[in-house]
Every structure is written in C-alpha cells, then in structure tokens.
Design a protein around this nucleic acid. Structure first.
Lengths: 130, 130, 130, 130
DNA sequence: GTGGTCTAGACCACG
DNA sequence: GTGGTCTAGACCACA
C-alpha cells in the first residue's frame, strides 16, 4: 500500500508522511477512508509502531487526517484552507505550476510531457476504480 | 546554484549530494567543470564547511568528482550517467508531479484544477512566444 | 523555570507545550531567546528527553520556536499570522475577550477584577526586568 | 451544560470531572440538584457511556455526588467547597487569563493590545447598560 | 554537545 | 482492539 525505502536517507517518518499526503492529493485515499491501524501499518512497513503513530499525529495536526479515540484514523475533508482569498490561492497555485514546468524543463521534458505525466497519474487511479 | 532546504527533513549532506548528481546527470555540470571551493559552497548554502567537505569526499570515492590538491574539485564522470538516465529522468519527473499535486491539494485544489492551471500557463507562454 | 505537575491528568508534553506558549505570550520569553537544551530541560523537569524533544518539535511546526540544527532551540518572531485580514483578527480577538469576561463572571469576578488580573500578570514580568 | 473538547489532550473523563467540580464549587450546581442520567450525558457530550459512568462513580467515591439506585445521581457536597474556594477561584482566573493572552498572541496581538480590547469591550457593555 | 531518528516495551484512555 | 503517553537507550547529523 505505502512503500518505505530503508536506503533512502530521508527519515522513515518523513517518507511515510509524504506518501500519505500524495495518496490523498491524487485521490488514492478519499475523504472518510480509514487508514490501517497504527500497529498494522507498522507491521506492513517493518517499522516501529511509534514511528507510524508519530506520522498520524503530525498529519492530524496538519489537518489531513482525523483520529477518533479508540476507533481509528481517517482521511479528513480537503480543508478549503484558512479562508485565504480566492486570489491568493490562485496566485499560489500559479507559482507552483511555474515551478513544476521549469523543473521539468531542467530535466529535459517539454511542457506537454510534464502535463501528460499528471494526466497519466490521474487516469491510473480512475481506471483502478479507486 | 544548488538549493538546500533547511526545513526539509532530509539530511543536508544527502540533499547536496543529490543536487550535484542531478546536475551532472542532466548536463548542467560537465566533465572537467570546477565546483566551488568547500568554503565558498558552505557560505553560499549557509551550511557548515564540514558538511560540504564530507559530500565532496563521498562523491570522490563514488567516482563522480575528483579532487586535485591545491587546485580544486572537478567533475569526473558523466558518460555512463547520461546513457542510463532515461529511467532516472522519468522517475524524477514523477516525483515532481507528485509534489505539485500534493502542494496544490494543500491549497485546496483538486487534481483536475491543478492540471487545468498548467494547461492555462502553457498556453499563455506560447502566445507570448516564450 | 517551567513547572510540570505529575498529578495533573494532562499529558506531560501538553503541559510543557502550554507553559512555553504562555511564557511567549506574556513576554517572559522573547523573540530570539534560547530555550534550555532538550536534555537540560528533561533533567530539570525530571522527564524523558524524548518528551521534551517532542514538545520543541511541535512548537516548531506551530511556528512558535525555531531549531537550528546542532545549535539549539530559539523563540521565533510573533508570526503576524497568515496575512489574515485586519478585520478578521480583530473579530477573533473580540470573541476571545468576550469569552474571557463571561467565564470570569461565572467564577464570580467583575470585569474590573478580570482586567486587573491581566495587568498584574503583565506588570510582574516588567518589574522583574525580564 | 458541560463542555468537552475532543481535541484537548486532557483525558475526557478528567475534563468532565473537572467541569462538574467547578459547577459545584461556583454554585451552578447546588446540593440536591439532579444530574443528567449517564446515558443522556453521554449523548449530550458525544462520549461513550462508560466514560460518564466512570466519572460519576469516582465523584461519588470522592463524596461530591450521591447515586440513589433507580432514581438518579445527585449533588451531595457544596458546603466546605465554597468556603475553601477563594484560592481556587483565584487560580482558575489565572488560568483563564493565561489562556486569553496566549490565544491572543496566536492571533498576533501583544499583551497590551489584548488588555486594551478588554477595556473597550467593558466600556461598550456599560454604556449599553448590559 | 546540540537536536533528530528509531526501537522496544510498558501502561493508559476510549469504545 | 484502537490510538496516546512515556521511558530507556542507541545511533545519526550538524556546528
């Protein structure tokens, strides 16, 4: 489900945190979905349970997950973000988009290829019926 | 020249090592190019000189760089790197795409909206002849 | 410096987190001030170092503290908060003020007494030259 | 009637126990008053009935409440509580004051501004004859 | 010597 | 059985 690379110098908890954020952003995890229990995830990833718990706690503080005491951990609604104005959000997205296109260009990809990559990513999850 | 993010949980030396390898792989650094001195790089990145020295030493041992005493540090590899780089580049693009979608989601945008933004930006660039 | 009550059912890390926030809010800790090292604080409070480290990490994520790798942990500037509009902030403060007066009234204090309590708190730190 | 905050790290049962004790100490609950049934309270607070039952049982053992089988749960103490409450009230006010200052600081206000806001609110209330 | 990561394992709060 | 807290102790990254 989520993969952790022990040889990657990035801390385990940071890898998992990022993996969950990506899963939510790409729609592989949807609002209300339940995540594996802390202990189950720990077994799956061959990691200590505390490490997983830390990740869930941080993502809860960040508003991505929601934990219900004694029940489990769930994906939370997509925030809508702190009532920041429409314009500000739009401007921020524009910056991200430019950065993406520029960095892809540095790797030798055209804008079309960079966009195609995203489309593919998105179609993958839809054809999987997730 | 190289960018280091102090808030990224990835160790500084790993970030720098990766940045140099990418620069070599994409041709931004070519065989024989001289790198900044350890101390200059440390100042530029606001990092301890020991950290930079450690990176140079490891990359020298890996055959990527070459240190000539009293002269400087230079790029050694390149040939085989670029040949093997199709998969590398594809993987790097995939990482960028995931980052873009996730950060857009943090702003409250769906994947569809994030992609639409790119289409728009691309058209703007083209009509401006950029 | 900071006090933790082991009999209080509130988790130790939550108590410490709150104590630091209060110290910053009342001015007992000022921007740029250095906090005790993780291990020193742990000894002072007779608590495990991990517990203190967790608190520092959470307060860093919350923007209250700033840690410089290998150097120490410091109080950060007072945010100015996410560019939320002047009106919104003012309205939020107004809500807090009303709640404070109401809850103080529930305890049998007049508005004057409630305000006096804050004045006293503030003068204490100033006469201490902190 | 009683407020419980699921995001407060303090255990739910401790929050509820405290809330009832405060209600008794400030006279909002008086000797002989009947409390909601365990199940009703559980529904009101969106908490498990076991949690409420545990609180009632502990407060009964502490002499604050009294359970009459098949009838309900009633307030028992009060007398000594109110006598000893000067320090209690003062301490409670101090907690409220700290919370006010800290939350105001989170909004980017200084202690002085937070106090000024109270002065203003107070004058408004008085001129409105509230 | 500073903070950060990770593990192992005990015990608590909640449903 | 779920997540949360806390401890003890090892090792790493950084200055």
């Amino acid at each position: 489900m989520f993969s952790i690379d022990a040889r990657d110098p990035t801390p385990l908890h940071a890898q998992l945190k990022w993996a969950i954020r990506v899963a939510v952003a790409t729609g592989r995890l949807r609002t209300g979905d339940r995540l594996p229990t802390v202990r189950q995830m720990a077994v799956d990833l061959r990691v200590n349970a505390n490490t997983v718990a830390k990740v869930y706690a941080e993502l809860e503080q960040a508003g991505v997950l929601e934990t219900r005491r004694g029940v489990g951990t769930f994906v939370r609604a997509a925030a809508e973000e702190t009532a920041a104005s429409h314009d500000e959000r739009q401007r921020a997205l524009s910056v991200l988009a430019d950065r993406y296109l520029t960095e892809a260009a540095d790797l030798g990809f055209t804008a079309a290829q960079a966009i195609q990559q995203l489309q593919t990513r998105r179609e993958e999850r839809e054809t999987n019926g997730q």
